[in-house]
Design a protein around this nucleic acid. Sequence first.
DNA 1: TATCCAAGGTAAGTT
DNA 2: AACTTACCTTGGATA
Length: 303
Amino acid sequence: MESGAIPLSSVGAFDLQATVESGQTYLWDRADGNMYETMSAHGGDHWYETVVPPIDGVSDERAVVRVRQVDDRLEWESTTDAVPLLTHLLRLDDDLDAILGSTSELPLLERAYEAYRGMRLVRDPPFPCLVSFICSAQMRVSRIHRMQMDMADAFGETVALDGRTYSAFPTPEQLADRTEAELRDLSLGYRAPYVRRTAEMVADGEADPAAVRGMAYEDAREYLTRFVGVGDKVADCVLLFSLEFLEAVPLDTWIRTAIADYYPECDAGGYAETSRAIRERFGGDYAGYAQTYVFYYLRAGGE
DNA sequence: TATCCAAGGTAAGTT
DNA sequence: AACTTACCTTGGATA
């Protein structure tokens, strides 16, 4: 086992708990089993763990990563050097002050930034992210999370670290080989055939979420909707939380409420038009960062 | 203890 | 292209 610590002085504001428990990613688990239950003021100091698939340009092999925030540093344990992995997954390379400073000066945004200072977007691996958000339809965050953990435990490989074993998220092939019934057994409900069919599309090379890299934003969103169970909203989530399209503003129920309450003139009827309007209202290039703060702020009851 | 309802929506069928 | 409706499951609220 390798281990180490990342001093946050060079990273800037960071809040691990807010980043991992804000409903952007469903691929991390909290070691104490209390994911989404007890929230702390800053950082949290709980251990979080995940199994990371190989990532182009970052890592060649699957790795277990455990991390916690203590005072002004991130302590980690891993099967490999976790610094590049954590930097990638938790966007430690973002200049958060510059990003948030570039968004619009709106009271709602200022309050949300203040409430969750240090929260960052994540860079989830594309396929697990895609499946996570297919599962998110009409679901609460705790149940979306449980579905991902259950799929890993039921169908994924196990990887060992320091005498314990961790379950990796299934590969497209591993999920495509399951039956709809097997997925329904994990309480996926009507999402089961969507997940199975989408996994099959990726496994067969029929389509690949990573293929959108380099596309214009709205073309990328259109591309992702070819996957079964993926409409505009889920496509935006995958673009924002995995594929580096930080201007994407997923129009979920919470943001739609915020639009109705605060920016009613942005409601232009259709998804594409409303999305465009709120993106401009939040400041363009990093509107997705603003969206994620607002989402968490409203969902946590900040009002 | 029973019933009802909403939860980060999407696909398929109608106008 | 815009507008309905059905869809699995379950935790929490209401009676």
